[in-house]
Design a protein around this nucleic acid. Structure first.
Lengths: 207, 207
DNA sequence: GTCTATATCCAGATAGAC
DNA sequence: GTCTATCTGGATATAGAC
């Protein structure tokens, strides 16, 4: 009875590997374990499956940003604790975000699919930028702004600071999407990056 | 007689917008101004066009790295001048790279196509990483290593420094590919980023 | 080297039995 | 809700005239 859900997950898996056009409904059906016509009892078209993936992902995304707001949302709450945050705390925070982004079936597959389909329409371009660039960037811009105001971060443009902090995360995430076997290597680079950033811009630093 | 070249350029344009599978040979032919069957006098199949694009781009890429080695290649030559390079020089250098990457028809279209097709095979994943991540990263790692040795850059891991410097360039390039109208905004952010990086890690800095 | 006509194939989708 | 059989359209590719 959760065939409907299984269709979404398998379609997403296939779309994230080869893109929407390269995947046939027959292949999706085969992955689910049924024949292609049976699939039309659950969704009225291939496009309908595509759209359902977006709805489902939006739902999960809202859930995520609501519950685990620690990662991306509400820098107001974080700002207080960030005044006393250690370098290790920052590292753990980023590692948690990476683990979730790489290993949640839905999240990782959807990101790959979006990477493939991002130029298909203005809506998709906007969604990609919003979800994978601006969201995390705006969060850090706001957060760093408050940390600067609190005197714990060097007085630089928080937007540029955030970009310097964010961009390596996004690039390493992309690298892991292409080469999953490099996850450990990327994690190490990411950690080194966060530590360098912290040591460099923390205004209480010694050297 | 350069219909053959025009086919490549138009196919690349279409592939870079919608991806290989979503583009029909009829659409390519129409863009060139001929009928689909005529196209088979120049290339024996659609796949053949795809491969020709790679060959042509590889050729242009080699040309580029040979002639304009200033941008990406041969950090040995650059290292000497970099000891005396100004902040403005650095900014101009990056702006030139961005202008070329965004406005050269072949380069920009091919990058977008690669972004769409990067997961199709290990070969494509490797090529993407090599050309759009590692190449520029290795260059800056080497360069920064020499600048550190020369005493003009802070003594940090050159690999991580390079990532901090590179990643924002890659992310902003991606943003411009999705939203060409934001080029000016991205250029400004990029300049601010380069200046912040320079001021922060230049070991002759005052504050 | 371009065209029209056509062969061939396969994908998305529907009909209707079970 | 699954299946088999089938319709239909569109895509790659070829044949052969000009």
């Amino acid at each position: 009875m959760d065939t409907k859900q299984k269709i979404l997950l398998e379609a997403l898996r296939l779309f994230s590997q080869r893109g929407y056009d390269a995947v046939s409904v027959e292949q999706i059906a085969a992955a689910v374990g049924i024949k292609a016509p049976s699939l039309y009892k659950h969704y009225k078209s291939k496009q309908d499956i595509f759209h359902a993936i977006f709805d489902e992902t939006a739902r999960r995304y809202d859930e995520f940003t609501d519950t685990i707001s620690v990662h991306v949302n509400n820098s107001e709450e974080d700002a207080k604790t960030f005044e006393e945050i250690t370098e290790d705390d920052l590292v753990e925070k980023v590692k948690a975000l990476i683990s979730y982004s790489l290993h949640d079936e839905y999240v990782s597959r959807f990101r790959r699919m979006m990477t493939i389909e991002q130029y298909r329409s203005k809506e998709l371009s906007d969604l990609y930028s919003q979800r994978y660039v601006h969201q995390i960037h705006n969060y850090h811009t706001e957060l760093f702004g408050k940390m600067i105001a609190a005197g714990v971060l060097a007085e630089e443009d928080p937007c540029i600071l955030a970009m310097m902090y964010d961009a390596p995360i996004l690039v390493l995430l992309g690298e892991c999407d292409r080469h999953p076997e490099k996850e450990e290597e990327c994690r190490k680079k990411l950690e080194a990056h966060v530590r360098l950033f912290y040591r460099t811009f923390n205004s209480r630093r010694k050297g």
